[in-house]
């Protein structure tokens, strides 16, 4: 008599008619040999998971799970365990975004004034974690040169005044971001407010990709991209306070604060 073994399983996986017909009959009755094999070998496919789903559904746990509270501690452990696995935005390089940047017109972000009503829109921010939860944000920057060439920047890179900086982010949640630019020795200036989508995306506004012009700049320049999850939107003043308040203020705020520093070469293309 034939019983289940590795050969039989692969014949079944290939759906060989003779094996299927034989085991369809053979497995209709209890068989210790075959059951031992099934108990100690995983598969085929997701059969093990389906068996366990059926067994669990025979008891109360599946129904109870629907109203189960979130085990916050357990989930925090899982998130920590996943940390190393996030798509590495620094390896993004020129692949995905570069093509988009070539095809789409880059809209240079005009500097916004803080009293602009479009900028002051968000007021519901109370600094407390709301239903939107918290957000993690990472930032990568590409420079588009005067000749249209793109190059990925490492933090602290030297750039030319004629470069336009393009931003790509990875966000763990949908939300909103405020983009600031800061010169050495000055306060952060608001460049604009942008929607964030979960996942990896180019920073863009309604008109297209957001580009930051460096015209007239010289020396160290910092870009700040500050994200908040869901519909909670801090006002620019709130964010500015957080930015100048140092790392302690940042940790308290539950805002996702990312920065990218470049150094604008002076003496080139000066007008």
């Amino acid at each position: 008599m034939r019983h289940l073994d590795a050969d039989a399983m692969s014949a079944l996986a290939r759906r060989e008619p003779e094996a299927v017909a034989y085991f369809r009959e053979h497995l209709a009755r209890p068989c210790d040999t075959c059951e031992d094999f099934l108990a100690t070998h995983a598969g085929p496919n997701l059969l093990d998971g389906q068996v366990d789903a059926a067994l669990l559904a025979a008891g109360p746990v599946a129904q109870k799970a629907k109203e189960a509270p979130l085990d916050e501690v357990g989930f925090a452990r899982v998130r920590r365990g996943m940390k190393g696995s996030r798509p590495d935005i620094r390896r993004w390089g020129l692949a995905a975004g570069a093509i988009a940047a070539c095809l789409l017109a880059v809209v240079v972000v005009p500097r916004m004034r803080a009293e602009d009503p479009a900028v002051q829109a968000g007021t519901e921010w109370d600094g407390i974690k709301g239903p939107g939860g918290s957000i993690d944000l990472e930032l990568a920057v590409v420079a588009r040169g005067a000749n249209g060439e793109l190059r990925r920047l490492d933090p602290q890179s030297a750039v030319a005044e004629s470069d336009v900086l393009l931003l790509r982010y990875h966000a763990t949640e949908a939300g909103t971001a405020l983009l600031f630019q800061q010169r050495a020795g000055q306060g952060p200036e608001l460049l604009g407010r942008f929607p964030l989508e979960a996942g990896m995306h180019d920073l863009q506004g309604p008109q297209g990709l957001a580009g930051v012009s460096l015209e007239g700049e010289s020396g160290p320049v910092t870009l700040w991209l500050v994200g908040s999850a869901g519909r909670q939107e801090p006002t620019p003043d709130t964010v500015r306070e957080v930015l100048v308040g140092g790392s302690a203020a940042r940790e308290r705020s539950r805002l996702a604060v990312t920065r990218f520093d470049v150094s604008v070469r002076s003496g080139q293309n000066r007008r």
Binding site: A53, A65, A68, D71, F75, R79, G132, A171, E173, A198
Partner: peptide, 17 residues
């Protein structure tokens, strides 16, 4: 699609099982 809140909901609902 990368939504953290979806991971937490999946965790909440499947952890008991």
């Amino acid at each position: 699609r990368g939504e953290t809140s979806a991971y937490s909901e999946l965790y909440r609902r499947t952890r008991p099982m």
